[in-house]
Nucleic acid binder design. Structure first.
Lengths: 216, 216
DNA sequence: CGGCGTCTCCCCCGTGCGGGGGAGACGATC
DNA sequence: GATCGTCTCCCCCGCACGGGGGAGACGCCG
């Protein structure tokens, strides 16, 4: 009994890409597509998919409203996997708050995309800590992974590390997170201490080596 | 005799999408894929595609430099279709000036994507036909040569980048390579300039994202 | 209630970093 | 022979970075 998936994205190219990646798996079947959130509800009623892969940014009805609508109107709703282009997308957080079960970056590698679909299908929530750790378990080397687990970064520190790993300066991180520069410096220092990194450069290396962030 | 296409994009998802869309056509065949511009030239030599669908924004060697490099080094070069996410992308204009034959939005409909590939394969230029040709003719070889020289790391610079990507400071790199600190600083500056990185942190990110170094 | 952790912000301070110049030595190329 | 690129080394300079210390606000939990 395969995992059935409904794709919801306004870009046909992305739908085709997700379809190609997912259909390559024996246990996953793409049962339908929709170009915007407005078409989702009847399609779910008709197809009863296990998982809905839903873009956050769509015309007419975006992923957040669509997620709310689905959870409100569908009894025994499917798992909702939010798809996004940008890592630190405020819409993603809104969608997760609205009840989505996980999020997925468009630039993720095929193996990660498949992994994400399987996880949410099993009832796991693919949020930050769990998702990252399991991916780290799958891809990362042991020492780096253990270093991360020993570290147990706080939510805020994870956010800061992610921005460090995108090449931002402390000032830019402060602007991104709407906090002061001194606050960022505090978080950065905590991250470096927990990772055993001497500077932000080594922190980025650890982030990659542990699978906390992954190359495209 | 089908139109043969080489896909160059750092996102596997986009490659899969383009492949799905194009392979659905009887007269179009995707003969290869590459994740960044650095791998393009040997692949073109090997596969001799009619059309290269090339992302503008890529790590290490972006679409602009890659386009210049292809037109400079390949005799009887393929048509180059620049692929982009954003409509008003300054990089697109740079790529067209570099000699690309057309551009394509990632959010285009499948029919448009197919249309674009067929057009450039026939020798038509997509958007600004005259402008593209004249600009390509005007800038042609000179800029291409300069660009290549600007883009490719020297042996020493590669060694320095590898050490940067292992978390070493300039002083440590100097000790490792048995040279002076000032020498290392010169190489580091050259690496940053060529990679378009603001600091060593961004250089490490580029090193990972481009596959120059890979997680364990 | 009182502790504890997290997040926020502030001070001082040393220094590694990166940009801006330039310059000599060597080999390859023309 | 002259030119070019690479590798080497040097100067000055501004500043982002990271360590050291501390502190107030909030929520959680025993």
């Amino acid at each position: 009994m395969p995992i059935t998936v409904l794709l919801v994205d306004d870009e046909p190219l992305v739908r085709a890409g997700l379809r190609a990646v997912l259909e390559a798996q024996a246990d996953i079947e793409v049962v339908g597509e929709a170009a915007d959130g407005a078409a989702v509800i009847p399609l779910i009623r008709q197809l009863r998919p296990h998982v809905v892969a839903m873009d956050v940014r769509m015309p007419l009805l975006d992923g957040i409203e669509a997620t709310k609508a689905v959870l409100k109107t569908i009894a025994d709703p499917p798992k909702i996997l939010v798809v996004t282009t940008f890592e630190n997308d405020e819409y993603v957080y809104q969608a997760l708050r609205a009840g989505a079960d996980g999020f997925l970056l468009k630039r993720a590698r095929p193996a990660e995309i498949v992994h994400a679909v399987r996880l949410v299908a099993e009832g796991e929530t693919l949020l930050f800590p769990a998702a990252v750790r399991s991916l780290a378990a799958e891809y990362g080397n042991r020492q780096a992974r253990e270093a991360l687990e020993r570290a147990a970064l706080t939510e805020r520190e994870e956010a800061v590390l992610r921005l460090i790993a995108r090449g931002l300066t402390n000032a830019e991180i402060a602007a991104e997170l709407y906090v002061g520069l001194e606050t960022v410096k505090s978080h950065v220092s905590a991250v470096l201490a927990k990772l055993g990194a001497r500077d932000r450069t080594q922190a980025v290396i650890t982030a990659y080596e542990s699978g906390f962030v992954t190359p495209a």
